[in-house]
Write a protein that binds this DNA or RNA. Structure first.
Lengths: 346, 346
DNA sequence: ATTGGCACTCACAGTTGAGGAGTGCCAGCG
DNA sequence: CGCTGGCACTCCTCAACTGTGAGTGCCAAT
């Protein structure tokens, strides 16, 4: 079993390797860290760490580098989340100053995070499933097309062009609008979807006859609602991957691909399990199923009035976990506070 | 001066180099292309081409590669835009089947284009400056916030949350809505902006007194309109850059940066001058001012009922211009036709 | 103008050898 | 029993060197 000091050695190796990108040897450790023992002793500890597969030597006689498992132990047991410097704090708050709009707030957040860490930053939109519909609007565009707009009480808007193949006068339009509004306004997104389904199923019921146009529009509204349920991401800093390219043995192609597709990242972030502080990390091979075996993701939960979501960072396995965890945590807190302020004043 | 055959030699060099990524020598040319002359003759021609700075030898005694100037001559005088194969055509049309929505159409287009060429694909949104406002909607969100929605006759929606620090009853709301609608509906985006400015300037005029809330909302509407004017892009395939990385001497960082910022690409595409077929290419160093000295962009204009815009490809200078020009042209034509169909039925 | 011949250049790949960082192991010591 | 200094060993890295071959430029001949 690996001793107390052995773990300290692991910590030193992770820190130095992240710092220098060079395999670290016993001598370096003795020089840079104040262990009270000789290099030979460190070597013995390192042999044990290697048995536990926490570190490896890239070749017979060079220093050691952490394995993914080593990073995992480091993150779980050794890393103290490093508080941000005051300069960093003011940087964040200056970034996040002012916005009222959720879109605005999230896009600033993601930029702050990438700026702060030099990694790819990710912010999840909070889920709007429990938001309630506050408005349904129909706008005729001519040529038989209708613009269908749905608004939630949280200020989200979803729109869709639908082809009804017909023109309507104000009376008809008002009637359809009223029917859809009655059905949906004040209901949650989730309920709204069910109610539409139910009504469409009542097709045969002569007492509640939706005409063809209304049915088409109801479908469009359903698609709008569906969009609220979808997990959306905001991303920034993907160009940073080009800078850190040497940290990836293979190509950065899978990373760029995941960034472009988004769905991979949504799933990945969805499967991560946060600790009691809302922090989580997924390291290297743990992401193999997503094609990101050389990358790590760290996330922090934030809270948008009940509907939680995550902010995260994507980068090479060889990343500075303490700093990055601190960054996502701090940014998540700022974001939570900002969204709460908006909300309590309501 | 460089002879007729000299230009043929240039063409051969460009084609072979794009094909093989290897500097091409006189022997290779004689082997692969049916010039009726010996290698020595080709060598003489190559010496002339080198004098004209159309080709260079990376080092004494290896084959030649085209310079940016060489690519330029190739594109302007030598490249025949290669028609697509039937398979490619059906691929495009299957990609573009179905959508009614402009967003949908453009996002499919950009995916078709990246799929077809393996490059980064770019589609510009048509300008909505001349679209006219068909609808202004106000939705109260509570906590003194108001959602402002503007819709154009082309079905574009822009929304914005604005803080009016107050709650209003239906009468007030109706009044404000009516005032803004009267001012804007039926007017073009450009005119609308001017009219708002003018009205805000009338602040002192006691005959047309906008109250504070209306003024705040008018500003929000102006921002919405501003958004319609902005040139927007849809991009796809940025991960492809990682595959073609070896074609870039330096890093792909500037390219990813430009893709993320978009504004650089908007300007670049804006400055390109199309030929009589709506095609344009900007090659290598010609893009130096945008930090993209190792990249090329080819574009084709498409037409969305008067409001034109461009589809384009971004890739390494060493790209297959004939094929890529053919691809953007074909896709632009499909897109034009699709948008026209929508429109004529109006 | 075109061609074959020829001397020349130079990148590339492989080889060799010295240097050095780092290891594993062992015997001795507190 | 843990720690230490010492030592032989490994093997990466770097630089110098070499042979090979592709490709060139030039020239005299056609």
């Amino acid at each position: 079993m690996v001793s107390e000091r052995g773990l300290e050695v692991l910590r030193a190796i992770v820190q130095d390797y992240v710092d220098t990108r060079e395999p670290v040897g016993s001598k370096t450790i003795v020089d840079r860290h104040a262990f009270g023992v000789s290099a030979a002793t460190i070597r013995n500890d390192m042999a044990l760490l290697e048995d536990e597969e926490l570190i490896v030597a890239p070749h017979t006689s060079s220093g050691r580098i952490p394995t993914d498992k080593g990073y995992r132990v480091f993150v779980d047991h050794l890393a103290e989340v490093r508080p941000l410097t005051p300069a960093q704090r003011t940087a964040i708050s200056s970034f996040l100053e002012g916005p009222v709009d959720l879109d605005d707030a999230l896009s600033r957040t993601v930029r702050a995070l990438t700026q702060l860490t030099g990694q790819v930053a990710i912010v999840q939109y909070p889920s709007f499933e429990r938001a309630s519909v506050s408005h349904v609007e129909l706008v005729q565009l001519g040529s038989g097309r209708m613009l269908v707009i749905v608004v939630t009480d949280t200020g989200r808007v979803s729109q869709r062009v639908s082809n009804v193949h017909d023109e309507f006068d104000e009376t008809d339009l008002g009637r359809m609008r009223a029917e859809l509004s009655t059905l949906l306004v004040g209901r949650s997104v989730r309920d709204g979807l069910q109610r539409i389904e139910a009504h469409l199923a009542l097709h045969d019921d002569p007492t509640k006859p939706w005409d063809a146009a209304t049915r088409v529009l109801a479908r469009a509204v359903a698609e709008d609602l569906e969009e609220f349920r979808q997990d959306r991401l905001v991303l920034a800093g993907s160009a940073n991957l080009a800078k850190r390219e040497s940290d990836f043995r293979g190509s950065i192609y899978p990373l760029l691909e995941a960034i472009e597709q988004q769905v991979t990242l949504v799933r990945l972030m969805g499967e991560m399990v946060a600790d009691e502080h809302g922090l989580a990390a997924s390291i290297g091979r743990e992401n193999e199923a997503f094609g990101l075996a050389e990358a790590s993701v760290v996330t922090s939960d934030y809270d948008a009035t009940g509907a939680g979501a995550r902010v995260g960072l994507l980068g090479p396995t060889r990343m500075d976990y303490p700093t990055n965890l601190a960054a996502v945590r701090a940014v998540a807190r700022y974001l939570t506070r900002m969204l709460e302020e908006d909300d309590t004043s309501r």
